[in-house]
Amino acid sequence: MESLDLWPQLVALGKVVAIDLVLAGDNAIVVGMAAAAVPLAQRRKVIFWGIAAAIVLRIFFALITTQLLAIIGLTLAGGVLLLWVCWKMYRELSTHGRDEVAPDEALEAPDVPAAGGAGAVGTGAAVAAGATTVGAAIWQIVVADVSMSLDNVLAVAGAAKDHPTILVIGLVLSVVLMGAAANMIAHLLHKHRWIGWVGLAIITYVALDMIWRGSREVLQHTAWLFQGA
């Protein structure tokens, strides 16, 4: 009987680990592509602040997860947001990662001229009409980090459901992976594309489940609007 009781938690843990792996790798690639578009001497700074922002935002959203989930309609909105993430992941996987650049690859990519300089073509994200400024690159990453960190936390919460211990493990794991292994995961996902497809399937399932549960939640709390109709 204990093994039967443990099975739902193991399934939830498996989903959470897959989600954290895929989204940490995806976030690292965003950082790498933005870094590849700035001059070589400034790329380490962009990568550092990009990953630091992702870690801080994941910690912030993790700390307020309970309050977030208490907001009526956020589960539904989070499910819709995750579907958008799934669509972007599908397009990336379909192109076989041709334009993906991991952070360490950004450091090895050809240099690009300063913004406004002569055109040059680097690897992946390098721009054709001069490099992006450091400030613009960091801002681009931070904006992406806000969305991706929120996506990560909501996806983990959606997968963990009624297993608070799995939720905590998933949130801590998302922070650790982003801080310590994001670059390695980005390479892993690029080399073994099937991991990305498995992650995509799991996140799609979680998104649809969140939309279903969120819709029921919204209907339950708005039923009184139609009682007098």
Rank of each mutant, 00 (worst) to 15 (best):
G124C: 06
V168W: 14
L76W: 06
A106Q: 03
V85S: 13
K88T: 13
A62V: 03
L82D: 10
C86N: 10
A126S: 02
V112Q: 01
L171F: 04
G119S: 04
H163R: 06
A144G: 06
A109P: 06
T132G: 07
W87P: 10
R58S: 09
D145C: 00
G119Q: 01
K161F: 11
V168F: 14
A137N: 03
I166N: 02
R91F: 09
A131G: 10
L167I: 12
R91K: 14
N152E: 10
S174I: 07
I55N: 03
T95D: 07
P110F: 07
T65E: 08
E105P: 02
N152A: 15
W84I: 15
F61E: 06
V112C: 03
V172L: 05
S94L: 12
V175F: 01
V101I: 11
E105H: 02
Q67E: 08
K161H: 15
H163W: 03
Y90R: 15
F60W: 04
G158D: 12
S149I: 02
V172K: 02
V127K: 05
L167P: 12
L83N: 09
G79S: 02
V127E: 05
V153L: 08
G170P: 04
E92V: 15
M148W: 07
V46F: 00
V80T: 10
A115R: 14
R98L: 14
A52N: 02
I169W: 13
E108F: 12
E92I: 15
